[in-house]
Design a protein around this nucleic acid. Structure first.
Lengths: 207, 207
DNA sequence: TAGATTGTTAATCGATTAACAATC
DNA sequence: TAGATTGTTAATCGATTAACAATC
């Protein structure tokens, strides 16, 4: 079970989403059918599946259930462990409520905020705690991922708090470049960039 | 002003974020300095900037202000026009509140939801309207982008409503593969995938 | 002039695609 | 057997990197 490219990882998740929408009776699915449904090359689909699955059967395809398990297992295998969310605004709460993370082996332990009005628990009963407790909780639960959903101005400072608490990776949603010590992983998400990609595609199409 | 690769677009936005954090007095910035600050290759930075800027001056670098303008102009150039958000849950409201879109030439006209409890206006005074009005508003305002932040089960149906209302591109945050007619652009965002990328990087580092 | 920097042209690398052999 | 499918090996394509020339 080797590592795959970023693009492959992206497609694997597409396959998983699609496979889950198949009617319950479906026993087999071919790479050809998958490729057709998702607008991808069929050779590419096969190569991707070869990296994570136990293989398909010529003439029939891949066992649908087995394939789902294989992809899920692969995606879960680099299990990042547990995470905290820093910043319980709309985006922070959206991520707190999101159920898709557990499929990837990530358990969101709690969210933190400085605004007393936001403290307590969210709709699903997850705790929103004061930032003062952040370090303590991280150390106690051995949290390895920090999800930053605070305003840009607060991001670098909160990032520092997370790292001090022993977090090994930061998933940053604030539009700033974070400075971190060697050995800490940062991945920045930027909504506006995704939008820019979309609008460039639109512009290309128009011309 | 040609089109650039997806990766370049991503980096351009990084440059922009970084340039904006420079102290106000900064006149010039070199590709070397940019590369160092963002952990990128300096040749790569130059090539990216060459695609969008009016060029730098040997020995001094690029005029910081001019560079910001050039990048902004480029990002704005494929201006997608106006958008609506369908689904005013936490994520929908987070996007509705997000101020970064206007820099990319996108104006969010309104959000829509089926839940009467969510209707009215959000914290910043943006309208949240009943879905029944979606088609009418889209046609009236010539909306070209639909942002889908509804639960997976409702995504395909709402996508259909958007397309019927003349939307040319759908930015999908629901974890499903949308079927759309030829000529409609779909870009799916998947939070869990981003997480998977992060955790794979973490796993690689551990080994 | 010397040094720092830009910008371009050629080489490398990685991912995708095409062609083909293997299997049921 | 014939046809559909898997899976692999080679060719292509695009993006990154390295080397170098041009500029101030």
């Amino acid at each position: 079970m080797s590592t795959v490219s970023r693009q492959t990882l992206l497609r694997l998740s597409q396959y998983l989403n699609y496979l889950r929408t198949l009617p319950p009776g479906t026993e087999y699915i071919s790479a050809t059918a998958l490729a057709l449904a998702l607008n991808l090359g069929e050779v590419q689909v096969r190569k991707d599946l070869a990296a994570v699955s136990h293989g398909g059967r010529p003439k029939v395809g891949y066992a649908a259930g087995g394939l789902i398990c294989d992809i899920e297992a692969f995606l879960k295998c680099g299990s990042p462990g547990s995470a905290v969310i820093v910043g319980a605004g709309n985006l922070g709460r959206a991520l707190l409520d999101y159920e898709g993370f557990s499929a990837y082996g990530l358990e969101v332990v709690a969210a933190f905020d400085t605004d007393p009005a936001r403290l307590g628990a969210d709709a699903r009963g997850r705790a929103i705690l004061p930032v003062a407790l952040l370090g303590e909780v991280c150390r106690e639960k051995g949290v390895s991922v920090g999800i930053l959903t605070v305003p840009a101005a607060a991001a670098q400072a909160m990032c520092g708090v997370l790292i001090e608490a022993g977090v090994k990776a930061v998933w940053n949603f604030a539009p700033v470049h974070l400075k971190v010590p060697e050995g800490v992983l940062v991945r920045s998400e930027n909504m506006a960039v995704s939008l820019a990609v979309l609008s460039q595609c639109l512009a290309e199409r128009r011309s």
